[in-house]
């Protein structure tokens, strides 16, 4: 594959344009390319270079994705071998369903309507909880980053509550909140809140003093400085917080759904275990993984226009 790329790279060197030493040596140019001026020839050569560079980059990229896909396939092959041969070396594969069984069961779930209902419930909870966490988290974060008072009042709560895992909140959430739905949303919200707050504070506190002074010299009010200087400056850190928060939101949601609730992908996974539907456990797990990855990707993509100014162009 590398050999081929090198051969392709080498092609333009033998292009007639590159052999013509300068624009005045018309005879040389004519000998190689009768209708072209040197300038046109240069353009052609440049375009060819650009095309080859682009093709090379694409090949490099597809090669990497190929490796990633192969890595996943390897795991499935291992899973297949381990389950068909009932491997039992400390880790016991005897009760683990085979990949083909899971695939079959998955087709069955896709054909029914129940499975979609579970996904819809989970997505709804994520949307509400995550939305609340983003709005409150960014607001609190900006407040804390801008005011020592706000930071001193809020930070102790954040530090104390942050290490408490979502599962530990479940009993209290059930006792305090009126519905199961609201307790699951609350737990999810709490999980997503902390990364948003902390990353926002971090971003706001990193604001460059020179930029604030420059803005003040240009007649900006405190409010304008907030919108034009502080928040955009904190944005890279905020976006990181938003992406991390999405991941945390999913596993907090799952904790909530496993223990209470009547729908949701977490509930689906746990009831499959109690109902001895082992393939469904794996379907649930993979669905969670997939939804979590896709939603995090969505957050990054949605935020990338806000980071276009970075040297990386906001690409993710």
């Amino acid at each position: 594959m590398n050999m081929k790329a090198n051969a392709a790279m080498a092609t333009p060197v033998s292009h007639p344009a590159d052999l013509a030493p300068d624009s005045h040596a018309e005879a040389t140019v004519e000998a190689h390319a009768p209708d072209q001026t040197q300038e046109q020839a240069d353009d052609v050569a440049q375009a060819a270079h650009a095309r080859i560079a682009a093709r090379h980059a694409l090949m490099e990229k597809s090669k990497r994705y190929l490796v990633r896909t192969a890595a996943l396939i390897m795991a499935v092959v291992f899973w297949h071998l381990a389950t068909t041969h009932d491997v039992n070396l400390f880790v016991n594969f005897e009760h683990v369903p085979e990949p083909l069984q899971v695939g079959e069961a998955f087709m069955g779930e896709l054909a029914g309507s129940e499975f979609y209902l579970h996904i819809a419930h989970s997505l709804e909870r994520i949307a509400v909880a995550y939305g609340l966490a983003v709005v409150l988290g960014v607001t609190l974060g900006v407040l804390m980053g801008r005011s020592k008072w706000a930071e001193d009042i809020i930070l102790p709560y954040i530090e104390l509550l942050r290490p408490i895992p979502a599962v530990a909140w479940i009993p209290l959430a059930i006792l305090m909140l009126p519905t199961e739905q609201s307790s699951i949303v609350f737990i999810t919200f709490l999980g997503a809140l902390f990364p948003v707050v902390l990353n926002t504070v971090h971003g706001v506190e990193q604001t460059s003093g020179v930029l604030v002074r420059a803005a003040r010299c240009l007649g900006a009010s405190n409010r304008s400085i907030l919108w034009h200087v502080i928040i955009p400056g904190a944005m890279p850190s905020i976006v990181t917080g938003l992406a991390v928060a999405m991941g945390v939101a999913w596993f907090s949601l799952l904790a909530g759904e496993i223990i209470s609730g009547q729908y949701g992908i977490g509930y689906f996974t746990w009831t499959s275990y109690t109902l001895i539907q082992y393939p469904q456990i794996i379907i649930g797990m993979l669905t969670i993984g997939l939804l979590g990855t896709l939603s995090t990707l969505l957050v990054r993509k949605a935020c990338s226009p806000l980071l276009r100014w970075q040297p990386t162009g906001g690409r993710v």
């Binding site: 460059s208 020179v210 930029l211 420059a214 944005m235 100014w309 970075q310």
Partner: peptide, 10 residues
Amino acid sequence: FQQHSLFPWK
């Protein structure tokens, strides 16, 4: 200013 005083996001 001496340097790095433009708003990078604008």
